[in-house]
Design a protein around this nucleic acid. Sequence first.
RNA 1: GCCGGCGUGGCGGAAUGGUAGACGCGGAGCACUCAAAAUGCUUUGUUCGAAAGGACGUGUGGGUUCGAGUCCCACCGCCGGCACCA
Length: 859
Amino acid sequence: MSENLSSSAEAIDDAPSVHAIQAKWQEYWAENDTFLAGGAEDTRPRKFVLAMFPYPSGDLHMGHAENYLYSDIVARFWRHRGHNVLNPIGWDSFGLPAENAAIRRGADPREWTYQNIDQQKRGFKSYGVSFDWSRELHTSDPEYYHWNQWLFLQLHERGLAYRKKSPVNWCPNDQTVLANEQVVDGRCERCGAEVIKKKLTQWYFKITDYADRLLDDLNQLEGRWPHKVLQMQRNWIGRSIGADVDFRIEGREEPVTVFSTRPDTLHGATFFVVAPDADLAAELVADAPAEVQERFAAYLADVQKTTDIDRQSTDRPKTGVFLERYAINPVNGEKMPIWAADYVLADYGHGAVMAVPAHDQRDLDFARAFDLPIKVVVDTTAPITGAMPVIEVDDEGVPIDTGAALDEQHPSKTGVALTGEGRLINSGDLNGLSKRNAITRTIEQLQANGTGRAAKNYRLRDWLISRQRFWGTPIPMLHHEDGSVTPVPEAQLPVTLPSVDGLDLSPRGASPLGAAESWVRTVDPVSGDPVLRDPDTMDTFVDSSWYFLRFLSPNSDQFAFDPTEAARWAPVDSYVGGVEHAILHLLYARFITKVLFDMGLIDFTEPFSSLINQGMVILDGAKMSKSKGNLVLFQEELDKHGADALRVGLAFAGPVEDDKDWADVSTTGAQKFLARALRLSHEVSSPVDVLFKDGNAALRRGTHHLLAEAPALVEQTKFNVLVARLMELVNLTRKTIDSGAGAADPAVREAVETLAVMLDLIAPHTAEEMWEALGHEPSVGLVHWRQADPALLVEDTITAVVQVGGKVRAQLEVSAKISEAELEALARADERVIRAIGDKEIMKVIVRAPKIVSFAVKG
RNA sequence: GCCGGCGUGGCGGAAUGGUAGACGCGGAGCACUCAAAAUGCUUUGUUCGAAAGGACGUGUGGGUUCGAGUCCCACCGCCGGCACCA
C-alpha cells in the first residue's frame, strides 16, 4: 500500500492498524517459541492436532486458509484447556507438478519446490497459525525419504511389497502408471487424460491382505469420522460374501474356480463366462477351431480398444464370443457353454463367472442377446416368512405348480432378473428353502463334495506404487543379470536421487532415472555382482502414509520414528483435511498404520482418532480454478482485510463440513465485530485485580453461559456458532456499558477478558492485543479457560410458555423455581389463555415447570 | 441400478421433541455531522388489520405426540460415493 495516502485513510484505520498488530504478535510468537510442543518432561495431557500437510504448489489458496484455520482452532483450544499440544507442519514436496515445472523451465524440480515452500511458509506465518515450526519436514529430503525406503523394505520382507505383471492404469499424458484410487471416472486424477490399460510389471503393496481389517475397523471410527468418509471407504473396499465354486471344464485337467454371491442359484447356472483379457480365455481358445480363434482374436482386439469410460456406460449392449468349450455344473452335471464376454472383468474374482440369467440382470441381458437358456430357481413370489411350504413335485422332482404369479414375472418375458428374496425351486433338495438358507446349505454341500467353499471378494485392488517419474522416492531394489531382484541393505539407505544434470525429465513411458547411467549401474553390496537400480520412484502417497509419525522424531537418523514418542503422542487426536482424500490418503495411511502395528512399532491400529472434513471454498456456486479465472487469492484477501478478519469470516460462514461460497463470506462483518471487541478492551477501566463478583449480574450470567457452552461448541466443531456466541457477548457488553453500568463495572472486565481468551481460537492477533490492553502479560494463547460458575448459570426468572391446542398463547415471566401447581394456576389465570380456551373442554394439562404449560383441548 | 447425505426468510445459517428464524449479511428508518465516512440505536418471515390482535409458515402428503424443523411412513428435488465387481 502506498505511503502518501491522505490522512482520511488513516482516520478510517485508526492506529495501530490491523497489519501492525498482526506483525507485532507474529514476531512475538516466533521470538518466544510460544507454540512449541512440550517435551518428555511435560506432564500435561497431550493432544496431537494435525492438518493434512500441503503440497507446495505456489501461493496458499483459500482452501488452505480454511483447512489450517480449523486445525489451528482445535490446537489453540486444547492449549487453553491445559494440554500439551503438538501442531506440526511439513511439506508433501515430492510429486508431478514440480517435475512438470522443471521440464518447462529446464530446471531442477528442487528449486521450484523449495521456493514454493518458502512462499507458503510466509503465508502461514502471516495467517497466524500456531504451528510448532521446530518439527518442519519435507518429504523430498533424503532425511525423510530414507524412511520411505526403509518402509518399503519392511513391507518387502513381509511379503507385502511384490512385483507382478498385470494390466495397469496408464496415463498417456503424464506417461506413468496410476493406482486404482487415482483414476476418477476413467480419467487421470491429476491431468484428466483418459486412462488406458497397459500390461506392465510393477511394484505393488498388498493392501488386499488388510481388506477385512480396513473394513471392520471402520466401525471403531463411527461417530468420530464423518459418516460420509466411512461410507466411501466401505464402498471402496467393497466386500462381497459368497462362495468359490469349482467347475470342471471338458478337456481341461484343472477345474476352474468362480466366485458367486448367490451360490443358492447354482442350479440355475446355464452358461459360463470368462473375461476375454484373462489368461484363461486365451488358454481355452487355444484348442478351439481356427474359425473360433479368429472370432475371439477380433473380439479381444475390440475389447482392448475400448476405454474404461466407454466400457462403463451402463446401457452398452452385451457382446461376446462362444468358445465352443463346456463347463460342467457340479450340482447337476449339466453342460454349460463357455463364452468370452467383456462384461466379466479379468481382475475381479477369478476372471470368470457362472451365469445365472434368471437371477442376475447382466447374465439375463447376455442370455437374451445370445438366446441362451433361462432357468428360474428362486420363486420370488413365495412368502419367505413362516413355515417352509410344502411343494408338490413331479416324478423328477420338478415342482408342479409354481404359480401363475411367478409365470408372469418370468425373466424371459419381462427382461428383469429376479434378484429378490424367495423360495428355491427346480433345485433338488434345496427346494423350499429361503434364499439365505439355501446359500448356507449349498456352501455346506460344496464343501462336503470338495467342489467349493465359502469365500469373500473385494473391490479393493492391491496398491500399485511404481511411478515412471523422477521426482519421488527411488525404490531401493536391485535387478540382477539373472532376473532376480534383491533389496538394497538397510545400512546402505538412503538411495538418493541423482543430480538432474544431463537428464531428460520429459515423460516418455520409462523412468528418467533409467537414463542416469552412473546412478543406475551399481554393484550389489551383498554379492558384489553388477546390478541395475530399480529406475522407478514410489507413489507420493507412500510418503504421506506415515508422515504423521515422523513429526514425533523429525531429525532422527536412527529410525523413521521413535516408538517411545509414538506411544506418547500418537495416534493423531484431531485430523483436519479435505474430503478429496477420503479414500486415497486416508486408506493408505490406515493400511500402513496396521502394518506398523503388526511390526510391533506402535500400539494402535487407527492413525487418526477423529477426522474433520472441511468443505470447499467456492465462488458464486462454482469451484475456483485458475483456468476458469474465478480465483480468490489468499494473499490479496489477507492484505485487504487482515488475517483475523479472514479467519473470523471463514469460521462464521457456515458449518465446517459445508462448502463456503466466498460471495457469502462477510469479511466486513468480521472486521466490524473485531473492531467492536478490540474497542471494548480499550474501554475497560477497572483494575486488573478487581473482584468480578460485584459486577453487573446480567452481564456476568452472559459471560458464564459462554464459558459453559463454548467447550462443547469447539469439540463439536460448531465454530460458526461459537463466533455467533462471541458476537452476542460483545453486544451484551456494549449494551451493559452504554446503559449505565459503565466501563468500570467489574463484570465488563470479566466479559472482555473472557472474550479475549476465547477469541484467541479464531482471531489470535486481536486477542493478544485485547489481552495486553487489559493489562496482562502475553501470551493469551497460553491462558487457561476459566470454569463457569454454576451459580451464575441459574436464571432467577424464566419465560414460561403456555400452549393451548399446541399453539403458543402466552408467555409468563416466572421464577425459575416455580412449582408445577403454581405455574398451572398462573397459566389458567392468564387472560390470553382464558380467551384461547374459550368454552372448549380441557382434556389434559401438561406442565413442565418452569418452561411449559400445555392445554390439550377439545371442540 | 445400489449405498449415503441434505431440503428452514432476500442471502449465509441457528435451534438436547418445548416461544422456528439465534448470530451475521443485505434492506429500511433514526441519532451524531455543515456533509460524508466511521460509530451507535430502532426495525426487517409471509399475510389480514389503523391498532389491539389474528391466520399461515422449516420440499410435498400422511402418521405418532399435549406439542414435530427435529421421530415414523410414502413421495418429490438436489448433492455425494460406487457401478457390467459376479
